[in-house]
Protein backbone atom coordinates (compact mmCIF):
# COMPACT_ATOMS: atom_id res chain seq x y z
CA UNK A 1 0.00 0.00 0.00
CA UNK A 2 1.36 3.43 -0.87
CA UNK A 3 2.26 6.12 1.61
CA UNK A 4 1.68 9.21 -0.47
CA UNK A 5 3.96 12.15 0.04
CA UNK A 6 4.81 15.43 -1.60
CA UNK A 7 8.02 17.23 -2.38
CA UNK A 8 7.98 20.98 -2.94
CA UNK A 9 11.02 22.60 -4.52
CA UNK A 10 11.32 26.07 -3.02
CA UNK A 11 13.99 27.05 -5.53
CA UNK A 12 11.59 26.44 -8.39
CA UNK A 13 8.38 27.72 -6.84
CA UNK A 14 7.50 31.21 -8.06
CA UNK A 15 4.81 31.88 -5.46
CA UNK A 16 2.22 32.27 -8.22
CA UNK A 17 -0.61 30.70 -6.16
CA UNK A 18 -1.85 28.57 -9.08
CA UNK A 19 -1.85 25.67 -6.62
CA UNK A 20 -3.97 27.67 -4.19
CA UNK A 21 -6.49 28.55 -6.86
CA UNK A 22 -6.64 25.01 -8.23
CA UNK A 23 -7.19 23.66 -4.74
CA UNK A 24 -10.00 26.14 -4.10
CA UNK A 25 -11.74 25.12 -7.32
CA UNK A 26 -11.14 21.40 -6.86
CA UNK A 27 -12.27 21.31 -3.24
CA UNK A 28 -15.03 23.93 -3.05
CA UNK A 29 -13.17 26.24 -0.72
CA UNK A 30 -14.27 29.61 0.55
CA UNK A 31 -12.13 32.54 -0.62
CA UNK A 32 -9.17 32.96 1.72
CA UNK A 33 -9.76 29.57 3.34
CA UNK A 34 -7.96 27.36 0.90
CA UNK A 35 -6.55 24.09 2.13
CA UNK A 36 -3.43 24.88 0.13
CA UNK A 37 -1.91 28.31 0.61
CA UNK A 38 1.32 30.10 -0.19
CA UNK A 39 2.71 31.93 2.81
CA UNK A 40 4.87 34.98 2.33
CA UNK A 41 7.73 36.07 4.52
CA UNK A 42 9.44 39.42 4.34
CA UNK A 43 12.64 40.09 6.24
CA UNK A 44 14.97 43.04 6.55
CA UNK A 45 14.43 46.60 5.46
CA UNK A 46 14.58 48.40 2.15
CA UNK A 47 16.90 48.32 0.22
CA UNK A 48 18.18 45.08 1.76
CA UNK A 49 15.08 43.09 2.20
CA UNK A 50 14.22 39.60 1.33
CA UNK A 51 10.89 38.18 0.26
CA UNK A 52 10.39 34.45 0.46
CA UNK A 53 7.40 32.21 0.17
CA UNK A 54 6.34 28.79 1.19
CA UNK A 55 3.57 26.71 -0.35
CA UNK A 56 1.77 25.03 2.53
CA UNK A 57 -0.68 22.16 2.14
CA UNK A 58 -1.61 19.89 5.05
CA UNK A 59 1.59 18.05 5.91
CA UNK A 60 -0.28 14.69 6.14
CA UNK A 61 1.86 13.94 9.15
CA UNK A 62 3.02 10.45 9.97
CA UNK A 63 2.37 11.16 13.66
CA UNK A 64 -0.46 13.64 13.28
CA UNK A 65 -1.30 15.52 16.45
CA UNK A 66 -4.71 16.31 14.97
CA UNK A 67 -5.52 12.59 14.98
CA UNK A 68 -4.45 11.94 18.53
CA UNK A 69 -6.41 14.86 19.99
CA UNK A 70 -9.66 14.21 18.12
CA UNK A 71 -12.06 12.85 20.74
CA UNK A 72 -14.28 11.03 18.25
CA UNK A 73 -11.75 9.62 15.78
CA UNK A 74 -13.37 11.89 13.20
CA UNK A 75 -9.84 12.77 12.15
CA UNK A 76 -8.04 9.61 11.18
CA UNK A 77 -5.17 8.34 9.11
CA UNK A 78 -6.30 6.32 6.14
CA UNK A 79 -4.34 3.07 6.21
CA UNK A 80 -4.45 2.54 2.46
CA UNK A 81 -2.92 5.86 1.47
CA UNK A 82 -1.29 7.37 4.56
CA UNK A 83 -3.53 10.42 4.10
CA UNK A 84 -5.10 12.14 7.11
CA UNK A 85 -8.84 12.61 6.59
CA UNK A 86 -11.82 14.02 8.49
CA UNK A 87 -15.07 12.10 8.80
CA UNK A 88 -17.71 14.83 8.74
CA UNK A 89 -20.28 12.38 10.10
CA UNK A 90 -18.31 12.07 13.32
CA UNK A 91 -16.81 15.53 13.68
CA UNK A 92 -18.37 17.43 16.57
CA UNK A 93 -16.76 20.78 15.78
CA UNK A 94 -14.78 20.95 19.01
CA UNK A 95 -11.83 22.47 17.09
CA UNK A 96 -9.24 20.70 19.21
CA UNK A 97 -7.54 19.52 16.00
CA UNK A 98 -7.27 23.12 14.84
CA UNK A 99 -5.64 24.08 18.09
CA UNK A 100 -3.30 21.08 17.96
CA UNK A 101 -2.12 21.31 14.34
CA UNK A 102 1.31 22.96 14.37
CA UNK A 103 0.92 24.00 10.73
CA UNK A 104 -2.40 25.88 10.96
CA UNK A 105 -4.01 24.07 8.04
CA UNK A 106 -7.53 23.34 9.28
CA UNK A 107 -10.77 25.21 8.69
CA UNK A 108 -14.05 25.36 10.56
CA UNK A 109 -17.24 26.17 8.72
CA UNK A 110 -19.43 28.11 11.12
CA UNK A 111 -17.65 31.39 11.62
CA UNK A 112 -17.20 34.76 10.04
CA UNK A 113 -15.16 34.17 6.87
CA UNK A 114 -11.53 35.24 6.70
CA UNK A 115 -12.32 37.20 3.53
CA UNK A 116 -15.37 39.46 3.37
CA UNK A 117 -18.00 39.62 1.97
CA UNK A 118 -19.35 36.25 2.99
CA UNK A 119 -20.00 34.50 -0.32
CA UNK A 120 -22.08 31.89 1.46
CA UNK A 121 -24.86 34.46 1.65
CA UNK A 122 -24.78 34.86 -2.14
CA UNK A 123 -24.68 31.12 -2.80
CA UNK A 124 -26.74 29.58 0.01
CA UNK A 125 -26.40 25.82 0.39
CA UNK A 126 -29.05 23.14 0.62
CA UNK A 127 -29.27 20.27 3.06
CA UNK A 128 -25.98 19.70 4.80
CA UNK A 129 -24.05 21.81 2.33
CA UNK A 130 -23.10 25.08 3.97
CA UNK A 131 -23.02 26.84 0.62
CA UNK A 132 -23.36 26.21 -3.05
CA UNK A 133 -20.15 27.27 -4.79
CA UNK A 134 -20.55 28.05 -8.47
CA UNK A 135 -17.45 25.96 -9.24
CA UNK A 136 -18.20 22.85 -7.20
CA UNK A 137 -16.68 19.43 -7.77
CA UNK A 138 -18.76 16.67 -9.41
CA UNK A 139 -21.26 15.20 -6.94
CA UNK A 140 -19.94 11.66 -7.36
CA UNK A 141 -16.65 12.67 -5.74
CA UNK A 142 -18.34 13.81 -2.53
CA UNK A 143 -17.71 11.61 0.46
CA UNK A 144 -18.46 13.13 3.89
CA UNK A 145 -16.79 10.20 5.63
CA UNK A 146 -13.52 11.43 4.13
CA UNK A 147 -14.12 15.15 4.34
CA UNK A 148 -14.53 15.49 0.57
CA UNK A 149 -17.20 17.72 -0.95
CA UNK A 150 -18.89 20.89 0.22
CA UNK A 151 -18.07 21.38 3.84
CA UNK A 152 -21.14 21.22 6.11
CA UNK A 153 -21.61 23.69 8.96
CA UNK A 154 -20.16 22.86 12.35
CA UNK A 155 -17.34 20.61 11.18
CA UNK A 156 -13.66 21.00 10.40
CA UNK A 157 -11.98 20.36 7.07
CA UNK A 158 -8.48 20.12 5.69
CA UNK A 159 -6.49 19.21 2.60
CA UNK A 160 -7.13 15.61 1.55
CA UNK A 161 -4.16 15.37 -0.86
CA UNK A 162 -7.02 15.14 -3.38
CA UNK A 163 -7.94 11.72 -2.02
CA UNK A 164 -10.81 11.50 -4.53
CA UNK A 165 -8.21 11.42 -7.32
CA UNK A 166 -5.21 9.81 -5.66
CA UNK A 167 -7.10 6.82 -4.29
CA UNK A 168 -8.14 5.84 -7.83
CA UNK A 169 -4.55 5.64 -9.08
CA UNK A 170 -3.41 2.35 -10.62
CA UNK A 171 -2.00 -0.01 -8.02
CA UNK A 172 1.75 -0.10 -7.52
CA UNK A 173 2.49 3.16 -9.29
CA UNK A 174 5.47 4.97 -7.74
CA UNK A 175 4.69 8.56 -8.72
CA UNK A 176 1.64 10.53 -9.74
CA UNK A 177 2.95 12.88 -12.36
CA UNK A 178 0.94 15.35 -14.40
CA UNK A 179 3.30 14.85 -17.35
CA UNK A 180 2.56 11.14 -17.47
CA UNK A 181 -0.75 10.58 -19.37
CA UNK A 182 -1.32 7.41 -17.34
CA UNK A 183 -1.26 9.15 -13.97
CA UNK A 184 -2.29 12.69 -14.88
CA UNK A 185 -5.94 12.25 -13.83
CA UNK A 186 -4.94 10.91 -10.43
CA UNK A 187 -2.49 13.68 -9.60
CA UNK A 188 -3.51 16.19 -6.90
CA UNK A 189 -4.81 19.46 -8.34
CA UNK A 190 -2.04 21.59 -6.81
CA UNK A 191 0.66 19.37 -8.34
CA UNK A 192 -1.05 19.21 -11.71
CA UNK A 193 -1.29 22.96 -12.20
CA UNK A 194 2.16 23.90 -10.93
CA UNK A 195 3.60 25.60 -14.01
CA UNK A 196 7.30 25.62 -13.03
CA UNK A 197 6.95 22.02 -11.76
CA UNK A 198 7.90 22.73 -8.19
CA UNK A 199 5.71 19.93 -6.82
CA UNK A 200 6.20 16.19 -6.99
CA UNK A 201 3.84 13.56 -5.66
CA UNK A 202 4.69 9.93 -5.04
CA UNK A 203 4.91 6.93 -2.80
CA UNK A 204 7.28 7.48 0.12
CA UNK A 205 7.31 3.73 0.76
CA UNK A 206 8.57 3.00 -2.73
CA UNK A 207 12.36 3.39 -2.82
CA UNK A 208 12.26 3.99 -6.56
CA UNK A 209 9.83 6.88 -6.48
CA UNK A 210 10.89 10.27 -7.76
CA UNK A 211 9.94 11.84 -4.42
CA UNK A 212 12.38 9.56 -2.59
CA UNK A 213 15.06 10.32 -5.15
CA UNK A 214 14.61 14.07 -4.69
CA UNK A 215 14.52 13.83 -0.88
CA UNK A 216 17.75 11.81 -0.89
CA UNK A 217 19.64 13.71 -3.57
CA UNK A 218 18.57 17.24 -2.84
CA UNK A 219 18.31 17.02 0.91
CA UNK A 220 14.56 17.17 1.45
CA UNK A 221 13.63 18.56 4.83
CA UNK A 222 10.43 18.67 6.85
CA UNK A 223 9.10 21.65 8.72
CA UNK A 224 9.00 21.91 12.49
CA UNK A 225 10.74 18.61 13.11
CA UNK A 226 10.76 19.43 16.82
CA UNK A 227 7.04 18.72 17.02
CA UNK A 228 7.59 15.06 16.14
CA UNK A 229 4.65 15.14 13.71
CA UNK A 230 6.87 13.83 10.86
CA UNK A 231 5.25 15.51 7.86
CA UNK A 232 4.90 13.59 4.61
CA UNK A 233 5.55 16.85 2.78
CA UNK A 234 9.23 17.58 2.15
CA UNK A 235 10.84 20.80 1.00
CA UNK A 236 13.88 21.26 -1.20
CA UNK A 237 15.68 24.48 -0.57
CA UNK A 238 19.09 24.11 -2.13
CA UNK A 239 20.61 22.26 0.78
CA UNK A 240 19.82 24.66 3.60
CA UNK A 241 16.86 24.63 5.91
CA UNK A 242 13.72 26.10 4.37
CA UNK A 243 13.15 29.67 5.42
CA UNK A 244 10.20 29.76 7.75
CA UNK A 245 11.02 32.57 10.13
CA UNK A 246 8.87 32.91 13.19
CA UNK A 247 7.45 36.35 13.88
CA UNK A 248 9.91 36.71 16.69
CA UNK A 249 13.03 35.41 14.98
CA UNK A 250 12.83 37.14 11.61
CA UNK A 251 15.26 39.87 10.67
CA UNK A 252 13.80 43.33 10.94
Amino acid sequence: MPKWGMVIDLETCTGCQACTTACAMENNRLPGETWQDVLFYSEGEYPNLNLSWLPRPCMQCENPSCVSVCPTKATYKDEGTGIVLVDWNKCIGCKYCMVACPYGVRFYMDEAPVVQPDVRATYPGEGRRSWNPPFKMPDEYEDPSKGIGIQPKGVVSKCTFCYHKVSRAPEGVADLDEDNPETKEFTPACVRVCAPKARYFGDLDNPNSKVNELIAEKGGVRLKEETGNKPQVYYLSGGGAPVVPGNRSRRT
Binding site: V67, S68, V69, C70, P71, T72, K73, A74, N89, K90, C91, I92, G93, C94, K95, Y96, Y108, D110, K153, G154, V155, V156
Partner: peptide
Amino acid sequence: LGAPLTALWATPLNLQTASPLF
Protein backbone atom coordinates in the same frame (compact mmCIF):
# COMPACT_ATOMS: atom_id res chain seq x y z
CA LEU B 1 -19.82 22.83 19.69
CA GLY B 2 -20.45 22.53 15.98
CA ALA B 3 -22.36 19.26 16.29
CA PRO B 4 -23.37 18.77 19.93
CA LEU B 5 -25.75 15.89 19.27
CA THR B 6 -23.09 13.97 17.39
CA ALA B 7 -20.82 14.50 20.41
CA LEU B 8 -23.23 12.52 22.57
CA TRP B 9 -22.64 9.28 20.69
CA ALA B 10 -19.45 9.81 18.72
CA THR B 11 -17.28 10.59 21.73
CA PRO B 12 -18.06 7.60 23.95
CA LEU B 13 -18.35 5.10 21.09
CA ASN B 14 -15.12 5.75 19.23
CA LEU B 15 -12.71 5.20 22.10
CA GLN B 16 -9.99 7.64 21.08
CA THR B 17 -8.02 6.99 24.25
CA ALA B 18 -5.11 9.19 23.10
CA SER B 19 -7.26 12.31 23.30
CA PRO B 20 -7.54 14.15 26.62
CA LEU B 21 -10.92 15.45 25.43
CA PHE B 22 -12.21 11.89 25.12
